[in-house]
């Protein structure tokens, strides 16, 4: 390294004593910064405290009720003894049914939106209707399901009606998750496949969908959690407070965890015993939903890292 002479001569060398740093002045803007940051810290503490207390209360009270019997047996003595197994099973059926309906439809819709004529009028209309469907209140889905599936189609209050209603409600979420996954497939993959003489559909089937599959699945899992916890859409389409044993066909009414909590709190004759059971149900539901969405979110973060974005 070369520093030509004459330059170093101008070095200040030693700086005036006692001024090794500028004296810090406290400005009003510093005070408002401190106050502002304090407010932000309070916000997050409050949010975490309240949300944490929900999880804590439900867990601590619920744990007291949960036992092997509670998870595996049918309710006895007017819902005051026994377990809630039929409600767990019912929620499982409803969720699986909803997904069986919404998954193929949602993925097909996402394929059309991303792969066929994006930007066309048809695509814009579909996108608009998905956005609006996503904002429809859950109880309105319930009304629709009741009028159409229960009454017009004559499925009655049943697993089928409830699953279809929940499925329609889950559709926008599944479509947008699938779209995100399909759009994340690099364009170069498609070009490579098409350049080898593959047709459009072959490219979708052999290249786009397999690459997008993990992303689609995590999106779907995230929605499974939400569907499992929904109450309003099944209120008049599928759920009932009490069944003798387990459902035997898709046309049976079912017990479901979220509805069971509501029913325990608002119906029945022994509130003090029922509240305890409701804590148990709430814990099962909470654990189920949180575990499912946590799994989906962790999976998604892994994928994002592997995509490098």
């Amino acid at each position: 390294m070369t520093i030509p002479e004459g330059i170093t001569d101008n070095l200040p060398g030693t700086w005036p004593k006692g001024t090794s740093g500028r004296k810090r002045i406290i400005r009003t803007s510093d005070i408002s910064q401190a106050l502002g940051f304090l407010a932000l810290v309070l916000c997050i503490i409050f949010a975490l405290l309240f949300l944490g207390s929900i999880v804590y209360f439900i867990t601590s009270r619920g744990m007291a009720v949960i036992s092997w019997e509670f998870l595996t047996e049918v309710p006895r003595r007017a819902m005051t003894k026994g377990g809630v197994a039929p409600a767990i099973v019912g929620t499982f059926y409803l969720t699986v049914g909803a997904m069986a309906f919404a998954l193929p439809l949602g993925v097909a819709c996402a394929i059309y939106l991303c792969e066929y004529s994006p930007g066309s009028v048809a695509v814009n209309i579909i996108r608009l209707s998905i956005n609006n469907l996503a904002g429809v209140p859950s109880v309105v889905f319930g009304l629709f399901g009741f009028a159409v599936f229960v009454k017009v189609f004559g499925f009655g209050v049943s697993i089928l009606s409830g699953s279809l209603t929940l499925g329609i409600m889950a559709l926008p979420g599944i479509i947008s998750a699938s779209q995100e996954a399909i759009l994340a497939v690099p364009q170069s993959y498609r070009e490579a496949s098409l350049a080898l003489g593959a047709t459009h559909w072959q490219t979708i089937k052999k290249v786009v969908l397999p690459t997008a599959l993990p992303g689609i699945l995590t999106g779907v899992i995230l929605n499974v959690g939400r569907v499992a916890g929904e109450t309003a859409p099944i209120l008049f389409t599928a759920a009932t407070f009490y069944t003798r044993g387990y459902p035997d066909s898709v046309f049976s009414e079912v017990m479901a965890l979220p509805y069971h909590i509501y029913a325990l709190m608002t119906e029945g004759t022994r509130p003090e015993v029922q509240t305890a059971i409701a804590y148990g149900c709430a814990l099962i539901l909470l654990a189920l939903v949180l575990a499912i969405s946590a799994a989906a979110i962790i999976l998604r973060q892994r994928q994002r890292i592997s995509y490098g974005s």
Binding site: L51, S53, L222, G229, I261, A282, L285, L290, A294, I297
Partner: peptide
């Protein structure tokens, strides 16, 4: 970030129940 997102998934019935009993 993920914790907030996971908490956003708590079912409304759980909030309702918590509101009612606590």
């Amino acid at each position: 970030k993920p914790v907030i997102e996971i908490l956003a998934g708590i079912p409304s019935i759980v909030y309702g129940f918590f509101g009612m009993v606590v």
